[in-house]
Simulated assay, not measured.
Amino acid sequence: MTNEKLAPNETMQIHEVLNLKTVCMSTSKMMEGVVFDQDLKALLERDVQQSIISIQTLQKLLEKAPLIR
């Protein structure tokens, strides 16, 4: 028996992680503009790309969240 819906607490936790990843990605993206070291800039760009993938994965998980009426 598989449950295709997330529990309310799981939904809340995914939202919290999603918010954190979004803030971190925004910070990394903004820092790219003020950083002059190319190695650090490349690291920030890689972090942004990985964050985008993580955010997309979390959004797919939220599709299993129960509807609140």
Rank of each mutant, 00 (worst) to 15 (best):
M12D: 11
M30R: 14
K29R: 14
L62W: 02
S51T: 04
N3C: 06
C24I: 01
M25R: 15
S26M: 14
V48P: 04
R69K: 07
P8N: 12
L44S: 01
M31P: 01
T22H: 11
E4F: 08
H15Q: 12
E32Q: 15
M31I: 06
A7Y: 08
H15K: 12
E45H: 14
C24Y: 13
K60I: 01
L40E: 07
Q49L: 11
L67M: 02
V23G: 01
T11C: 05
Q59M: 11
N3E: 09
L40R: 10
T11A: 13
L18S: 09
S26Q: 11
L6W: 06
M31S: 10
V34H: 05
Q59S: 06
L6P: 04
A65P: 04
S28H: 07
L61N: 03
L40I: 15
F36D: 14
M12P: 00
F36P: 00
T11P: 05
I14D: 05
E10M: 09
A42T: 13
V23C: 08
K21C: 12
L43I: 03
T27E: 11
E32Y: 00
L43T: 09
M30S: 14
M12V: 10
V34S: 15
S26D: 09
V17I: 12
V23I: 13
P66Q: 10
L20M: 13
V34E: 07
N9K: 03
E4P: 03
V48L: 08
M31N: 09
I55C: 10
V34N: 08
T11K: 13
E32N: 05
E4C: 03
D47P: 00
M1R: 00
L44I: 05
T22G: 06
L6Q: 03
D37K: 02
I52H: 00
L20N: 12
Q13H: 07
E32V: 07
E4A: 04
L67C: 01
I55T: 11
K5P: 00
I14Y: 12
T27H: 08
C24G: 08
F36H: 08
I53G: 00
K5V: 08
N3I: 01
R69W: 02
V23M: 12
D39S: 05
R46K: 11
V48N: 02
L58H: 14
N3D: 11
Q38H: 07
V23E: 13
L62K: 02
E16W: 04
M30P: 00
E16N: 07
I53C: 01
D37L: 02
L18W: 13
K21Y: 09
V48D: 03
L62T: 03
L20G: 00
E10Q: 15
E4Y: 06
Q56I: 05
I52R: 10
V48A: 03
A42Q: 15
K41R: 15
K29V: 03
S26T: 08
T2S: 06
A65K: 12
K5W: 10
R69Q: 10
M25A: 10
M12G: 02
V48I: 08
Q56T: 14
T2V: 05
A7H: 10
D47H: 11
Q59H: 07
M30G: 05
V17E: 12
L58R: 09
D37A: 03
E32K: 13
A7P: 01
M12E: 14
K5F: 14
M12I: 12
E63H: 03
I55L: 04
S54L: 06
Q13W: 09
G33T: 02
K5G: 00
M31L: 15
